[in-house]
Write a protein that binds this DNA or RNA. Structure first.
Length: 514
RNA sequence: GGUCCGUUCGUCUAACGGUUAGGACUCAAGAUUUUCAUUCUUGCAAUAGGGGUUCGAUUCCCCUACGGACUACCA
């Protein structure tokens, strides 16, 4: 049995989106469960699309999620020099160019690849020609003999072109007339006729770097990757990768493959993309991302999600433990994860359910921890209160919120006296002798010195009973005065927390204002 | 267009030939509550369609439909 080594290999062309985080998570869970190694590798062989800050963003995102790499990253940075812990450095493909070049040449020498000199215009024309005839152009055994490459040109001509111009690429020579059967750990057997494949470019002339396909296979072999778990968008190039292992003589190193279904747009067509978040009002990215032209994309972190909740949401989007348990911490996910329980079909993200997950995690938090978080919000509003006071408030409202950021709207009346009184409540309850009765309660409270919840509760209910008042209108009117509207925890709790002075003040003002 | 992958309540999913097709989110109703929320109970809601195979198909096979990915010197 091979030692489990998996990699997450993002390319730094922008922020990592939640689908990418899920792929990283599944890789991580798979590795951890099997006592294996989780490696990060940066696939930056596209020099044209490089985005500044993307690499840092990716690492910070994984860090926030608690997905910690065993290899490839040290002190929050991609490792560039080999060490015991990081024997395969550098972990950035742009810094491994020479290695890929060597294998590209080996493929040419062994007859598995060739130089191609066709310009993109020439190929474009051929494609159009075919299209007009209702055919499909494929650069492979059916066409390569009629194109400009080292298979059709003489040795001398090829040499000359290579020496004189920079305009050449290396293409893989796909073998003809064979059917491949490739096993995918999630999808089972996949059959492919090699005649439908095309001779993909392995080495680009444009930036003198390998394409993803070559770099990927070489690195996976050298980094001793045992299992490749990646997105479904790679399924069509699986046969090419499969053949590449064979052509390089590395069949015994070939990893197991598993292709994950995609995360889909919640409202219909296609895979989840960068802009869906703004359009549909939920984050697509783990962390906030500032685009080059000042655009801001929301992040789960900034929206108030806990990383544990975010991970849990992602884990269950395309996988389930086979039981009815839905709230799973990282530890449990590691223990329970298995590729056979990964769902084959694409999953649409659901915001409501995501909120529910966060609510579940919020409820599990210690009140003192929530106090710390809420305090930051209060400070921004210029409100300072002693921790004990905030603690009592949070204790009462935490069940009512999915996010700490909702605490303020749920508890503002603890910190500020109401300015407006909800007219609907006024119309419904503020009648007849209510003002008089409230005044009676006011008088009772004014001489009361025990503002414990139980005493206030006793005092109010006894007063109401003794006078044969109606419970509903009295309580609702008291609430109206104290809160301004018809919401919140019990009156006794509110009075007890805001205390005598504030209660008296609010009753006085309410009696005058309503 | 071509190649590949997929299809169970609105959404995430369970049921790996035999279930009244289960759970969760959402929604609705009821109970509890001085209000709101919580909580509890109940309810609404699905096997894409058509053929096979089988005593029996959500499950296996085929066709159709629909959805998705890929089809770059992008990953």
């Amino acid at each position: 049995m091979r030692k489990t080594r998996v990699r997450f290999a993002p390319s730094p062309t922008g922020p990592l989106h939640m689908g990418g985080v899920r792929t990283a998570l599944y890789n991580y869970l798979y590795a951890k469960q099997r006592g294996g190694t989780f490696i990060i590798r940066i696939e930056d062989t596209d020099s044209q699309r490089f985005v500044k800050g993307a690499e840092e963003y990716i690492l910070e995102s994984l860090n926030w999620c608690g997905i910690t790499p065993d290899e490839g990253v040290e002190n929050g940075k991609i490792v560039e020099h080999p060490s015991d812990k990081h024997p395969h450095a550098p972990y950035r493909q742009s810094q491994r160019r020479d290695m890929y070049k060597k294998y590209a040449m080996q493929l040419i020498d062994s007859g598995n690849a060739y130089y191609s000199f066709d310009t993109s215009e020439e190929l474009e024309n051929r494609r159009k020609e075919c299209e007009n005839k209702g055919e499909t152009f494929i650069y492979n055994s059916t066409t390569r003999n009629s194109l400009k490459n080292s298979l059709t040109l003489s040795k001398e001509e090829t040499e000359n072109l290579l020496n004189q111009t920079d305009n050449w690429v290396i293409r893989f020579k796909v073998p003809e007339n064979s059917t491949l059967t490739i096993f995918d750990q999630i999808r089972g057997e996949i059959h492919i006729d090699t005649n439908t494949l095309d001779d993909k470019v392995l080495w680009k002339c444009i930036d003198k770097l390998p394409t993803y396909h070559l770099a990927n296979v070489v690195d996976d072999k050298y980094m001793e990757i045992s299992d490749v778990i990646r997105g479904e968008e790679w399924l069509p190039s699986l046969p090419l990768h499969f053949l590449l292992y064979k052509a390089l003589g590395w069949e015994e190193y070939r990893p197991n493959f598993a292709h994950l279904s995609l995360l889909l747009k919640p409202d219909g067509k296609g895979k989840l993309s960068k802009r869906d978040g703004e359009r549909l009002g939920f984050p697509v990215f783990p962390l906030e991302w500032r685009g080059e032209n000042g655009e801001i994309f929301k992040g789960y972190r900034e929206d108030g999600y806990y990383p544990e909740a975010f991970i849990n949401i992602l884990a269950l989007l395309g996988w389930n433990p086979g039981t009815e348990q839905e709230i799973l911490c990282l530890e449990e996910l590691i223990n329970l994860f298995s590729l056979d329980r990964v769902v084959k079909s694409g999953a649409k993200f659901n915001l409501e359910k995501a909120k529910w997950f966060n609510q579940e995690y919020l409820r599990k938090k210690d009140i003192s921890e929530l106090v710390k978080e809420f305090k930051e919000i209060l400070i921004k509003k210029g409100i300072s209160k002693e921790d004990e006071f905030i603690y009592r408030v949070v204790e009462l409202i935490k069940e009512r919120a999915s996010f700490v950021k909702e605490f303020w709207d749920l508890s503002n009346y603890f910190f500020e006296a109401p300015i407006h009184y909800d007219q609907k409540v006024v119309d419904k309850f503020w009648k007849d002798d209510i003002p008089n009765n409230i005044t009676r309660i006011y008088n009772e409270l004014e001489i009361c010195n025990d503002f414990s919840v139980s005493n206030i509760e006793r005092l109010i209910s006894e007063t109401i009973k003794e006078n044969n008042w109606k419970m509903g209108p009295m309580m609702n009117s008291l609430r109206l005065i104290l809160v301004g509207e018809s919401k919140g925890p019990s009156i006794a709790d509110i009075i007890s927390i805001i205390g005598k002075d504030e209660t008296i003040k609010r009753l006085k003002r309410g009696l005058e204002a309503i």
